Simulated assay, not measured.
Amino acid sequence: MVYSKRTKPISLVIMESLERRTTLSRKHTNYLRGMQKGFQGELAFDRMAEELGQGCVILKDLFLQPNMSNAFQLDALIVIGETIYLYEIKNYSGEYTYGPEMLLKKPDFELSNPLIQLQNTKNRLKIFLKELGYVLEIKAYVAYVNPEFTLFHAPKLDTVLLPTQLNSHFSELTIEAAALLTPPKKFVQDLMKHNVAQPRFIEDIPEYNFSDLKKGVTCEECGSFELVNYRQNYQCCNCGFKNPLHSALLNTITEYQRLFPESKLTTGMMYNWCNKTASKKRIKRALNEIRGKQ
């Protein structure tokens, strides 16, 4: 049973908006591509996990706020009976050489061994569970999901799942979950009470302002500005996607809210944000709908 959905991190959503509406530096483009690749890896993991039976609970993309310590993030949890399976998901590609502290990718690229982060996360989760009054077994893994990833000189570790080991790992979990008919709902409910919205990592996002960003309504499917507007609908010239224009306006206004969360929404401001390609009457109707949901 999937108990929580995975959504794009707000920092990734903002960076994708900025890529559409301004020119990013190479540094920030690389940062964006890394986030996109990481998110795609998490989705790939989710597809495998969702093949498990009904005797488990799958929790995705948690940001837990304990009462007595700082918040921490979890890529994925699978709960089967009295056991919690914790996953740090990596979508690395290419050839790496294992080191206990660093992974080396030729010729000279190094990154921290994910097992270090995994152990830290496991410790924090264990402390948090004790705070909630639970003593459960935690089995923690780094899951490398990209089939084009190779790790040389890696010792045989029970905490590392290479791409070729993922199918057998989930097959074992399927058998284990099949023996349990009732997922541990109370524990999951107690855990989710402490799940909070992830913060914007502002220090990694370039500075921007309204005047520097490209204005216009974008395609909900591919993000293109090249739209043909009909009376009630639009069609994207880039990907051919068709949808009601009202839906695109809602999407574009929501994008503005994410980029400028402290800014007041007005019809005039949104008219300019949409590059005057929609009437003020249409924009006002979209604004009223958004305000009605807040």
Rank of each mutant, 00 (worst) to 15 (best):
P163D: 05
L18F: 06
Q54V: 14
L74W: 05
Q119S: 13
T83P: 01
I84P: 01
V196A: 02
E19C: 09
R291A: 14
R285P: 07
Q73A: 04
Q189T: 15
N91S: 12
R258Q: 09
L213H: 06
E221W: 06
S247Y: 01
D61P: 12
A278N: 09
N113A: 11
L18C: 06
F72S: 03
D204F: 13
L18Y: 05
N123V: 08
T252G: 09
R124M: 14
S25H: 08
A248Q: 05
V217G: 02
N272G: 05
N251C: 10
L18D: 07
M102P: 04
L18H: 08
T159F: 03
E95W: 04
L18N: 05
I290Q: 05
E289L: 15
T7R: 10
E16R: 14
L115D: 02
T97A: 02
I10Y: 01
P66I: 06
Y144W: 07
Q257D: 04
Y271H: 14
V217Q: 01
L43P: 09
L129W: 12
Y96F: 15
Q36S: 11
I290Y: 05
K284A: 13
L24W: 04
K280D: 05
P100E: 14
G216H: 00
H246L: 10
N70E: 12
R20N: 03
A178Y: 00
L125E: 08
V196C: 03
N146W: 02
K106W: 00
I14K: 06
Y256I: 13
N30I: 14
E50I: 14
P147T: 08
T252V: 10
P183M: 09
I10P: 08
L245C: 07
L111Q: 12
M192T: 15
M269H: 03
C56W: 00
L191H: 05
D158V: 04
E131I: 14
S247N: 13
Y234D: 08
P107E: 10
L250G: 04
G41E: 07
T150Q: 12
S168Y: 02
S112W: 01
E220Y: 01
E110C: 07
M192I: 15
R47F: 12
F72Q: 02
T150L: 10
Q294W: 02
K122H: 12
M68V: 09
C239I: 15
R258M: 07
T7Y: 11
I10G: 02
C236K: 07
L227V: 15
Y208Q: 04
K156S: 10
Q165Y: 00
G38A: 09
V2I: 14
I14Y: 00
Q117C: 09
N146T: 06
T150D: 03
A278T: 13
A178H: 08
E16G: 03
T150E: 10
F170V: 06
Y85D: 03
N91M: 04
L173T: 00
Y98K: 01
T266C: 01
L43Q: 15
K242D: 03
D46I: 10
D158N: 13
E110G: 01
L104K: 12
T83R: 04
G268I: 10
P147S: 04
L12Y: 07
P206C: 11
C237E: 13
L125N: 03
F210V: 10
N209A: 12
